[in-house]
C-alpha cells in the first residue's frame, strides 16, 4: 500500500513541476500580452484594462500561484481571441476557456474510448496468435505489417484509409463533424474512421509487446509441464502463459493509451474532428496563449495520469512488488 501512495505522491509532484514548466515557458514570451491580444493599433485604455485583468503588474511567482489557485477551481481564464472580440464589441458574450474546452474534451475522450475498444481486444488477440504461430509466414506478415504501421506518420495512414474506405468505397464518413445533437449511433459512425486510424497507430506496439511477453514465458518449466501433459498449444498459451504475461501487457496498453494523446492531435486535424487536439492546434496558430496553456496542461495531466496508472497496475499485478521485503 505504501509503495502505491508513494507513486501517487510522485505523480502529483510531477504534475506540479510540469505546471511550473508550462507557466514559465509561456511567461518567457517577450513583449506585451496586451499588444499580442489587441494588435498594433490598440488604444492605451484597452491595453491597460487587459494588463490589469491578466495581472501583468504583479510578480511572476504571485502570478503563478494565482494561476494555480484558479486552476484548482477550474477557472482557466478567457482566450485572447475572445478577449479581443469582447474589447471590440463592448464586453458582452465571451466564453471562458473552460467552457470552450469542456465539450471538446468529451469528444476527444469519446474518440479515445472507441479506439481503445477496438484496439485492445484486436491487438491482444493478434499478439496471442503471433506467439502461437511464431516464425511462420503469418508471424512474419504480422511483424512487417506492424512495423510499417508504427513507423508511418499518422496522416499517411489517415489519408490511405480515407482513400480506401471513404472515397473509393464510400462505406464510412471522411469528415467527423460530430456535434452534441447527434444520436450515439450517428456519432459512432462518424468517429469510426479516425478511430480506425488511431487503432492502426497504437495496435502494432501493443501486439508486438503481447507477442514478446508470451514468448518470453514459453521456456518456463510450467509451460513445459503443460505441454507434456498433452495440452493443445492454444490452451497452453491462453490458460498458462497469458495470465502470467498480463502485467507487461497491461503496462504497454496504458502506455499506448498515453501515446494516443499525442496521436489524437494530428488525426483530429485530418478528420476535422471537433476535439481538444484541434482546438490546441488552432490556438497554436493564432497564438492564443490561455487556451494553449490549458490544453497543454490537460494533455500533460492525462499523460502523467496514464503513466501513473501503468505503474500502479504493474505493481498490483505483481505479488513480488505488492509485498516488498
Amino acid at each position: 500500500m505504501r509503495i502505491i501512495l508513494q507513486r501517487l505522491g510522485l505523480g502529483l509532484i510531477t504534475l506540479l513541476v510540469v505546471s511550473i514548466v508550462i507557466f514559465v515557458a509561456v511567461n518567457m514570451l517577450p513583449g506585451d500580452f496586451a499588444q499580442v491580444i489587441l494588435g498594433q493599433g490598440a488604444t492605451e485604455e484597452a491595453s491597460a484594462a487587459i494588463r490589469e485583468s491578466l495581472e501583468l503588474d504583479k510578480s511572476l511567482t504571485a502570478r503563478y500561484f494565482s494561476w494555480l489557485g484558479k486552476l484548482l477551481t477550474l477557472d482557466l481564464g478567457t482566450s485572447f481571441a475572445q478577449l479581443n472580440f469582447a474589447s471590440n464589441m463592448g464586453g458582452a458574450g465571451t466564453v471562458t476557456v473552460a467552457e470552450q474546452i469542456a465539450p471538446r474534451l468529451g469528444n476527444t475522450l469519446f474518440l479515445a474510448g472507441v479506439t481503445a475498444a477496438i484496439a485492445v481486444p484486436v491487438s491482444v488477440m493478434l499478439g496471442v496468435l503471433a506467439a502461437l504461430y511464431r516464425n511462420t509466414p503469418f508471424d512474419r506478415a504480422v511483424n512487417i505489417f506492424s512495423l510499417t504501421s508504427i513507423s508511418s506518420p499518422e496522416f499517411f495512414l489517415a489519408y490511405v484509409l480515407i482513400l480506401l474506405l471513404a472515397v473509393l468505397n464510400p462505406i464510412l464518413q471522411p469528415l467527423s463533424n460530430i456535434n452534441s445533437d447527434m444520436s450515439f449511433g450517428e456519432k459512432l459512425e462518424k468517429t469510426l474512421l479516425p478511430a480506425l486510424t488511431l487503432t492502426l497507430v497504437v495496435m502494432a506496439h501493443m501486439m508486438r509487446m503481447t507477442r514478446a511477453a508470451i514468448i518470453n514465458l514459453l521456456a518456463s518449466p510450467y509451460i513445459e509441464m503443460a505441454r507434456l501433459k498433452g495440452m493443445s498449444p492454444m490452451r497452453v498459451i491462453v490458460r498458462h502463459a497469458l495470465p502470467n504475461a498480463l502485467a507487461p501487457i497491461i503496462n504497454v496498453i496504458a502506455l499506448n493509451l498515453a501515446y494516443l494523446i499525442t496521436g489524437v492531435v494530428v488525426v483530429e486535424v485530418v478528420f476535422v474532428y471537433p476535439g481538444i487536439g484541434q482546438l490546441f492546434v488552432d490556438s497554436v496558430k493564432i497564438r492564443d496563449i490561455p487556451v494553449v496553456q490549458a490544453c497543454c496542461l490537460i494533455f500533460a495531466a492525462a499523460y502523467i495520469l496514464l503513466n501513473l496508472t501503468a505503474d500502479i497496475l504493474s505493481i498490483l499485478s505483481n505479488p513480488r512488488l505488492r509485498h516488498p521485503k
Binding site: V18, T262, R287, Y303
Partner: peptide
Amino acid sequence: AIPSLIFALLLMT
C-alpha cells in the same frame, strides 16, 4: 513527463 509533440507545439507558439 510532457508528451513531446504537445511540448513542441507549445514551444513553437
